[in-house]
Design a binder for these strands. Structure first.
Length: 137
DNA sequence: GCCAACGTTGGC
DNA sequence: GCCAACGTTGGC
């Protein structure tokens, strides 16, 4: 199973808001980047990902899961882009900050570190295990 | 608030 | 189809 990382500015959509949606989850819309789109299209139901707060906090704060696979994003007037639905699974016992990720051996290749602008990213199994452990899970 | 990195747009 | 100009993102 693949793993993912979703970036969101807390002022736009925060982890707390995601948790408040419960098991029905919410659609992850607004992606307008083709690499991010490819990642969205590759996602399968049940695959988990990190929820990352960009800008403010700059930390991985919890784990989410895909509950609906790629479908058209009706807010995209060009019709080119789509979205998936995700729900919050569990919070980290403690947030894992970008600083810590940068200093952690084994995470040098994370896209978060190397291409900070990509909003939906794949995470390798190794990276997943390391970051989960750092988050106390 | 600044600016580097990246993507997109549009003139040629 | 190239590339300069512009807009956006996100770390600092």
């Amino acid at each position: 199973m693949a793993h993912w990382l979703y970036k969101s500015e807390p002022s736009v959509w925060s982890w707390d808001q995601q948790v408040a949606e419960g098991d029905k989850g919410t659609h992850w819309n607004g992606v307008r980047n083709h690499v991010a789109k490819q990642n969205l299209m590759a996602m399968k139901n049940g695959e988990q990902g990190f929820f990352y707060h960009s800008n403010e906090g700059k930390a991985v704060v919890g784990i989410v899961e895909v509950i609906r696979e790629y479908y058209p994003d009706h807010t995209d007037e060009t019709g080119k882009f789509g979205m998936v639905d995700i729900k919050a699974v569990k919070p980290f016992k403690r947030p894992v900050t970008l600083d810590e990720i940068k200093q952690q051996p084994g995470l040098e290749k994370m896209i978060l570190v190397n291409n900070s602008r990509l909003s939906v990213q794949p995470v390798t199994d190794e990276e997943w295990a390391i970051v989960c452990r750092m988050g106390g899970l």
